[in-house]
Design a protein around this nucleic acid. Structure first.
Lengths: 199, 199
DNA sequence: AAACCGATTGACTGGTCAGTCAACCAGGGA
DNA sequence: TCCCTGGTTGACTGACCAGTCAATCGGTTT
């Protein structure tokens, strides 16, 4: 009864999948690649997951729910709209810093894979956009953000900018040192809130 | 000798491919789907193109070279850095308005498909980022843009914001009326240049 | 020790397509 | 008239791989 396998094979498979998906991409990953990387038999993947898709779904859900929670918390506890946006950007950037492989998989294979998994998870992804839009709208209502720019447009732009930076790091288009991550957080908020032109 | 087939089958195939790729996505499009949509025999696709991939490559190259030209022209002829950025955003938004299916294919299947075609065309895609960064850097050098924000970061953010808006239209996350397109152009530049906070 | 049961194994199958190729057709030139 | 050539056709093949399943293993219960 007392089940306590010293190693959680299911977790082992998920972690292996992160590495393999990050390395080869979802489409060119064979289920056997995952099994090999995890050091388990082919069939065991199907013991724990209904399909190859379900492995990726699981990875996405695990992480995205954290993001949604983080955005809501930022909204609840942030001192100002600006601070809230900074917390959001910070969380996403830190997620990448903490586990770049997982974030690569989620962005490349789900968030930006509009014809496959992005489509499936559109409503959850959208929830993030909406939460950010709410932060902006509240800022506008409070008078600290200008009202002549649609909050949904801002939300999309802000999120798109973050994701593009992550993409830039993932594909080594822009430098990815620790200092760059820190700069990015404030840069994003400074640009969006203060603008490029000097005051 | 005087070859003048009343209908250019090659073009016909490319146009059909745009529609089918836009509808089903590249991966779930069979070569037979393209042939059927174009009203030609299966084998003819291989007479004009080396592979299914080459069809998409051709579509991307056709369009992306226009974009690169447009950015360079904006840089050359724009009155101010701000006007240049507006021209860039305007061109991309208008490209979508003019041919949403083609832009959908290019963004979804190439630009954001980092593990397949995005990887292949990375250097060309990057050229766009670089050209935008140059506009920003020139603006900084001229003193009309603040210098404490890295030009490459701004470039990525700006481009990412545009692409996210297009994605939003493509997947009907945000409204896509004519007025929205016009708003978007100025919104993007206003946000990036003036910022969200009132002056 | 015998029955039990979930975890684990990996060979095998069925279906799917990208790409090939031999044949066919049309029209221009000899 | 009869090649010749290049566009056009679509049946076929070879490779690939997700998912299945019957067999095995190892620990627990009775």
């Amino acid at each position: 009864m007392a089940k306590a396998p010293p190693i959680d094979k299911r977790r082992q498979i998920l972690d292996a999948a992160i590495r393999v998906f990050a390395r080869q991409g979802f489409h060119s990953t064979r289920v056997s690649d995952i099994a090999d990387e995890a050091g388990v038999a082919y069939g065991l993947v199907y013991h724990y997951f209904k399909s190859k898709d379900e492995v990726l779904n699981e990875l996405f859900n695990e992480r995205w729910s954290l993001l949604l929670t983080a955005i809501e918390e930022a909204d609840r506890e942030g001192a100002s709209p600006r601070a809230k946006l900074e917390a959001v950007a910070g969380f996403i950037v830190d997620s990448y810093r903490h586990d770049p492989e997982l974030m690569k998989v989620i962005i490349v294979e789900v968030t930006r894979a509009a014809n496959s998994f992005g489509r499936t998870h559109l409503s959850e992804i959208r929830r993030a956009y909406d939460s950010i839009a709410k932060i902006v709208a509240d800022g506008q209502a409070a008078g600290v953000f200008r009202r002549d720019i649609d909050a949904n447009f801002v939300s999309m732009s802000f999120y798109g900018a973050i994701e593009q930076l992550l993409s830039g790091w993932i594909f080594e288009v822009i430098p990815a040192a620790d200092s760059d991550f820190d700069q990015a957080k404030t840069l994003l908020v400074t640009t969006i809130c203060d603008g490029l032109e000097p005051r």
